[in-house]
């Protein structure tokens, strides 16, 4: 570099390089900061809910029915039972059609129906849950003439369906085809192969997918607002007892249970959060803690499980 022209060029190039390096460093740090920023609410929410909910979580919270508003004590036993009922109903309604549709989508992915199933599953996952609630209101509540756990259970089932179909489909595709072919070659019919060979081989993944779906459903409120509605007196024991006293058979009692309006934890949380009574707000925090702990525990468990299986499969 002897002449001046090329040395200024060199200096300018160096300066440009420094600027580029600085821009690089700044932008890289910024992307890291956005990640940190997005995670602040996660820890804020978890921390605050644990702090508040932990103070108001009592044994009575889990075992007693609500007391009148404005009085101390009582619990949300009705909502806990209702959540269990709704989640069981949702699982029962979602699992069989979900599995069958996933079998179809996994083995015939490129037929028109296979494409339609996969596409509508994806789109269904994006339908607002409150719209599903309206649908079930028109489909079940209007027809029956009253709000019921049945309607709420079906609404949650529709919300679970995409999760179940998608995870099942993925898991079925991971099962080595040789396994299926060996079974078919031995003369086992397709359905036996699917249910007794392929399904158990994919079993663990299916269970995690199912659990994730249940976790999502158990935290939903919007579709229950005008299907399950809420019921402060919902109690399995008293329903069964009064059913037995009036000489109903077990099936009739079961029908009576699912025909009741029921409460659920998120529904209770939403109602209590809007009431002016401090006791109710305290219970809302406790409900939030129980709900969040359940949902997060299932999520973490499911992901650890998938990770563990993936590691083991890789060997």
């Amino acid at each position: 570099m002897t002449n001046t022209a090329s040395s200024t060029h060199f200096i300018r190039a160096r300066r440009g390089y420094t600027r580029r390096r600085t821009a690089n460093a700044v932008m890289l740090v910024l992307t890291g900061l956005t990640t940190a920023l997005a995670l602040i609410p996660l820890f804020w929410i978890i921390g605050y809910v644990v702090y508040q909910g932990g103070q108001y979580l009592t044994p009575a919270f889990f075992t007693e029915l609500p007391t009148p508003p404005g009085t101390e004590g009582g619990g949300v036993w009705n909502a806990i039972q209702g959540t269990i009922l709704l989640v069981i109903l949702a699982g029962l309604f979602a699992l069989p059609p979900g599995l069958l549709a996933a079998f179809y989508a996994a083995y015939y992915p490129n037929t028109p129906l296979g494409i339609a199933v996969r596409f509508s599953t994806d789109v269904l996952a994006g339908v607002p849950s409150i719209v599903i609630g309206l649908f079930l209101y028109a489909l079940v509540v209007v027809v029956q003439g009253h709000f019921s756990g049945l309607a709420g259970g079906i609404a949650l089932a529709i919300l679970m369906l995409p999760t179940i179909i998608r995870t099942t489909e993925e898991m079925l595709k991971l099962v080595p085809p040789s396994l299926r072919e060996a079974s078919l070659a031995l003369g086992a019919p397709e359905w036996k192969t699917s249910l007794q060979v392929v399904l158990p081989a994919a079993g663990n993944g299916l269970i995690t997918g199912f659990l994730l779906g249940l976790a999502r459903a158990s935290g939903e409120t919007a579709p229950l607002l005008f299907t399950a509605l809420g019921n402060e007196w919902f109690d399995f024991r008293s329903l069964i007892r009064s059913g037995l006293e009036s000489g109903m058979n077990p099936l009739e009692i079961l029908v009576r249970i699912i025909e009741q309006p029921v409460d659920s934890l998120p529904l209770t949380l939403w109602k209590y959060a809007q009431q002016p009574y401090p006791e109710r707000i305290h219970q809302a925090w406790a409900a939030a803690l129980v709900l969040m702990a359940f949902v997060l525990a299932v999520n973490i468990f499911a992901r650890l499980w998938i990770l563990f299986r993936a590691r083991r499969m890789k060997g």
């Binding site: 995670l39 809910v49 935290g219 949380l269 959060a273 707000i281 939030a288 949902v295 973490i300």
Partner: peptide, 22 residues
């Protein structure tokens, strides 16, 4: 980090609301 984001997405909407209000 990916998990934490998924956990944030998994927190029920009503819990967001309760935390939001108070």
């Amino acid at each position: 980090l990916g998990w934490m984001l998924e956990l944030l997405a998994a927190i029920p909407s009503v819990v967001f609301g309760l935390w939001g209000i108070f």
